[in-house]
Amino acid sequence: MDNQQPTAFFIHGPSPLARLIFFAALSLSVMMADARLHYLTEIRLGLVALMHPLENLAALPANLYRGMSEYLVTHNTLLKENRRLTLLALQQGVELQSLKTLASENEHLHKLFGAAKLIAQPAKLAEITHTGRDPFTHKVMVNLGARQNIVAGQAVVDQTGVVGQVTLVYPFSSEVTLITDKTLAIPVQIERNGLRAIAFGQGRDGTIGLPYLPANVDIRKGDKLITSGIDGIYPAGLAVAMVIKLESNTDSPFARITCQPVAGVENHFQVLLLSPSSPVVADGRVINENAIKATAPSVSPSKSTIRALPHASH
């Protein structure tokens, strides 16, 4: 140990305690500036863009692995999948024909009422790059960002239902908060009786809850929740969740309702990002099941009735 540098023995500069107090105070003020004043959003955006190559590098092994396993899919699997998809396309083609009739009829009715015309905006297909690194939140990152005209607030769906909402947009990627996150609320409707409610993520166990509903509310186990569309973010009629548990406490006026998300919130690679005003949605089952709902009430019902009134009075 004789050749050890003398500097290792005597640390120059301020004492550790002084440094601790200085840097702890600095951390606290940075936290305050970020949480309360939102000064640091711009700086974060820039730095995250700078870090992007590093993230790509880190994602490389997983991507390689996925590419390899995709490449090594057997002939048999591909054939099976092909057959299944052909069948599905056939079935959906039949349903699509009736949808066209309905759509034109719907358009005609909208014209009659003078309501805003529906514009179908294609959804963007995004790939999930990684799940959030924070065990306290339910978030994922997707590979589309401000460069692809993604804006915060866009609804995110998969083929079975609502996944979440874009909450933070970086230049090359964006952060999607899942519906199971504690901070996300989504206006829903019970499919069976049209009852409106707001569902909140519960965080734990990947479930969502329906708080503030009276204990005697008409909700049963197995009821399906769909988006009500009154927020203008989620188009109406998308599947959200299924009621799995109902509890009513005698000492509480509210029922405790737990629901399981329909979409594979935690396990998929691709999702669709819908633009906020987009009335027509997604592909697959969502449209099949709720074909009429998904197209018709997407301009929120209240709006069309208000616009319809002057016409009706004439």
């Binding site: 951390s27 936290m31 970020d34 939140t137």
Partner: peptide
């Protein structure tokens, strides 16, 4: 903090 996307400073 910047990479994790949470509250900066934690």
């Amino acid at each position: 903090d910047l990479i994790n996307g949470g509250l900066i400073g934690q």
